[in-house]
Design a protein around this nucleic acid. Structure first.
Lengths: 336, 336
DNA sequence: AAGATGCTTGCACACAAGTGCAATTCCATC
DNA sequence: GATGGAATTGCACTTGTGTGCAAGCATCTT
């Protein structure tokens, strides 16, 4: 019956047991500090017996906390999961520790996430979803925090900004479909008006119309499989369904593909060519084989670590990464 | 050019600005403390102007840190992502904050994860993957930490233990396949010998053999789509492929299904009946419609929060959750 | 009006670390 | 053996917070 919570063992306890001063314990666990081999041995022995662990919270009181906050909504989305995985692993390797804050995308809950971040003295905050207002970022910067936005292209000054080349993707997607001989084009997007989605849509439509091909634009809901499915139902429910479609997200594309096949009996790539974006694992599965653009997650993760682990603060700016086209079978071979 | 990192604003700065003592500031942000309406107003005003945020690290020096560590490997796996999502959301709602530690499953990296956990004075550690050794858990408990294991059925004393009823799942999976009239049974598992997977396998095989039906067991690699795919290639490469298969994981099942269809031209559920486990979203997609068992994530999340947010420490023990059968079309209707 | 009561407030300490400074110890050299 | 110098050690202060204690002050009661 342990009624009382046993406290964490502190440096003082270790010092008493080892018969040295508390400073000696502190120095034993500090690189480059001056301790004799003898006392070091005694301290390490006592620490081992007691199960002592340096308190990083107390350490963080004086200097950097080495905490990085990750603000995310929709963690279950495959791309989000991938990003979180990459970031946590790389940050950890760089000696940082990550706090994950699961939030909605609305202004209100982003603000509360931001407060958490400050409460725990995070050195930096990385936003994977949801865009903080300029005022919130101001507060963070005033507190010496760094802010990193990933795939949120909003022009907020003072924060680091990573994005992919959506213009290239939109343009390339069109050329892929045209080279495959598609004439009735459509674009499927979501009702969540994220900057990067809008950009892909804008460029795709602009390039297509410049080439004399009109584009049917469809948005049936959030960025999910179900929305893609529903979009296909609506588009093929009309008299002349499309024969070339760019879905701004793989998840939308997979839903779209399933509806096209199972509801309307279409075969890919003969009757329908499809291009996605993100390169989620599911797109490579045998049932889909989706042609898409891969986000260079590893590179992006490395860059975030470079930004946050740099000895001197990096000047904030925008860095664009090139998505990599992934050729699979959802587009006719003539496209090559 | 901000050469120097601006420091976080502390309670002292706020106190000076508001013309009160530092204690007054502290009390303003502490529920139930005695402050006059007048000073409270002054403090809040000054805090607002300076952008003050209570330092939870310093607060955590005295009492509970309210930090919970989540130790995970393979975050990109759909189930893991779901679990992390549920847990972070619920813990957050309960006033906790979660640190995610992304690790391998080997003893070595689990130990280092455990150390991180202690370094940051986490109140509790939740293991989603990887099992810590008894000695490590001992250390955690000695430091007053709580340890929660999810789906790791190893009999470690002193820690909370959540699991699903694998026995029921294994048994039920067999009955489903038998009622569907399957006679050539197979079980697909992974080479990662997790306790819960082993248990499902053990029961399924035992019940089937007790009923006079032998089971071909196949494990081609880790718990992935690719392993499931490879398992199907091997099983159907033989003379008499199975007509009823239990995959101990949905991801394995989807890979298996794709290989069966695309490599061997089999149709489900006529020529092959398939049952999975986990109920990942992808299994509900139109291309798969996999019959499976759902892990009750929401309930499990609630239970974890109950354990960790309880005012008095809960006595550690094992709690079993009932998986819920999800009927889809990968099994013949006669099974109903 | 005097005393009692209750609300505020500030001081000082605790928490667990790192570190500058001065004192001490140790060793080698003259 | 004395002296110089380097290495080690401990004291005391710092970080930002919460809180017990006692003093201060206003209000109420008799």
């Amino acid at each position: 019956m342990t009624e009382e919570r046993r406290p964490f063992v502190s440096a003082r306890t270790v010092a008493e047991r080892a018969g040295v001063s508390r400073s000696a314990v502190s120095r034993t666990f500090t690189d480059g500090a001056s301790v004799s081999e003898e006392t070091r041995r005694k301290v390490l022995e006592a620490a081992g017996e007691l199960g002592y662990h340096v308190n990083h919270l107390a350490r963080g009181l004086r200097e950097r906390s080495n905490i990085v906050c990750l603000v995310v909504a929709d963690m279950t989305t495959p791309i989000r999961a991938r990003l979180i995985d990459v970031l946590t692993r790389k940050l950890q390797a760089a000696g940082k520790v990550t706090m994950v804050i699961n939030t909605g995308t609305d202004e209100q809950s982003v603000a509360s996430a931001m407060r958490q971040t400050l409460n725990y003295r995070a050195d930096a905050t990385v936003f994977l979803s949801g865009t903080p207002s300029a005022k919130l970022i101001e507060t963070s910067l005033a507190n010496g925090q760094q802010v990193v936005l990933i795939n949120r292209d909003d022009p907020l000054t003072g924060c680091h900004n990573l994005g992919v080349d959506n213009e290239m993707a939109g343009r390339e997607a069109f050329f892929l479909l045209r080279r495959a001989g598609c004439t009735r084009l459509a674009l499927v997007t979501s009702t969540a008006h994220t900057a990067s989605l809008i950009e892909r849509e804008r460029v795709f439509v602009a390039v297509a119309e410049a080439a004399g091909l009109p584009v049917a634009v469809m948005a049936a809901g959030p960025t999910t499989y179900a929305s893609g499915y529903e979009s296909a139902r609506r588009l093929f429910g009309r008299s002349d369904g499309p024969d070339g479609v760019f879905c701004v997200t793989d998840l939308l594309a997979l839903g779209f593909m399933d509806a096209a096949r199972h509801e309307f009996g279409l075969t890919l790539p003969d009757q329908l060519c499809l291009v996605g974006f993100d390169d989620i694992e599911e797109g490579a599965w045998e049932s889909y084989k989706l042609t898409t653009f891969a986000q260079p997650f590893a590179e992006m993760g490395d860059h975030v670590v470079d930004l946050l682990a740099a000895p001197v603060p990096v000047i904030p700016g925008r860095r664009i990464f090139q998505p990599v086209p992934i050729w699979r079978k959802s587009i006719r071979a003539s496209a090559l």
